[in-house]
């Protein structure tokens, strides 16, 4: 039971990251490698907003925000912060290339550059060491609850619920709202969307804003449920998210969700004595899926253009 829940919780986080990639990929057809760095940023922002202090090895020793918010507003604000940073990434790493009609390949490099700047800024300011959220962070929540005879960590339940809520909201918004429809129209065909009066640049910015928020949310949640092992921790989640993205099919929202859960559960089922190999599992699955079904589990078939 605990294993399955752990898997589902990790899978939920992977799905958040993969959805972030999916949003950007569907409107621009490129991958934003800064996603992992935004994930780290979300974790650190949550930590700071909840009153966490920087230890001595950072550029700001002992510094902390003069406030200590409860978890929920801190997480929301951190997600907003990551969303704004994501907008900045779009402005610096993607917009100049689009204006010049440069090769899409270049944005792989520029977005990774933006991610490097972000992660190293975090390292410079906060230090390379890990941070743990103080005990009693989640006031009013018991550390563990028992369910059907099994004790499970309640923070994992919380994580799963928040992930599910975020994913549900996003899907509903994409399906039902005007903005969501416009975003999907741009993803389908930017030129036609523009002819129909949709501001495609605004939609691109919106996609980055949302994907940044998802990454920030994921970072904050993982930070609270595990810890912040250093500024680079988001990069690993970013890579896993990439594997999930392809597993589910590039640009497919249900694919990203299903892929995330599948990956999380598969990792949770790795026996403890082989835990060192766990990190390779995601990529081994990815490898196998790519070879059997190059367009991913739920992706559209690729149409070869002639």
């Amino acid at each position: 039971m605990q294993t399955l829940l752990n898997g589902a919780a990790a899978g939920g986080v992977y799905a958040l990251v993969a959805l972030g990639y999916t949003l950007v990929f569907s409107v621009l057809g490129v991958i934003n490698f800064a996603q992992g760095a935004l994930f780290s940023l979300g974790g650190y922002l949550t930590f700071l907003l909840m009153g966490g202090r920087i230890s001595a090895n950072g550029g700001l020793p002992g510094w902390g925000l003069p406030l200590a918010l409860p978890f929920a507003p801190a997480l929301l604000l951190a997600a907003m912060g990551a969303a704004l940073a994501s907008l900045l990434v779009e402005r610096l790493a993607f917009a100049p290339l689009r204006q010049r009609n440069a090769e899409p390949l270049l944005s792989l490099i520029t977005s990774l550059g933006a991610g490097l700047v972000l992660v190293n800024l975090l390292q410079l300011l906060m230090g390379a060491e890990g941070y743990a959220f103080p005990a009693g962070t989640l006031t009013g929540l018991p550390a563990a609850i028992s369910l059907g005879g099994a004790r499970i960590r309640s923070v994992q339940v919380l994580l799963l619920v928040i992930c599910a809520a975020a994913v549900l909201l996003l899907t509903l918004w994409l399906e039902r709202s005007r903005g969501g429809r416009a975003l999907r129209a741009v993803a389908e065909d930017p030129t036609t969307a523009r002819l129909l009066g949709i501001d495609s640049d605004a939609m691109v910015r919106l996609a980055f804003l949302l994907s940044g928020a998802l990454a920030g949310l994921g970072g904050g949640l993982v930070g609270v449920s595990v810890s912040l092992p250093g500024p680079y921790f988001g990069i690993g989640y970013g890579l896993k998210g990439l594997a999930v993205l392809v597993l589910g099919g590039l640009g497919s929202v249900p694919g990203a969700i299903a892929g995330g859960l599948l990956m999380g559960l598969a990792e949770a089922l790795v026996p403890a004595d082989a835990s060192g190999w766990r990190d390779a599992l995601a990529f081994a699955i990815l490898f196998a899926v790519l070879l059997l079904r190059p367009s991913g589990l739920l992706g559209r078939r690729l149409v070869e253009k002639v």
């Binding site: 520029t110 992660v119 390292q123």
Partner: peptide
């Protein structure tokens, strides 16, 4: 390392 990232970010632009 921040500057190195900036070079990678701005170089292709």
């Amino acid at each position: 390392l921040v500057l190195f990232g900036l070079v990678i970010l701005l170089g292709p632009v």
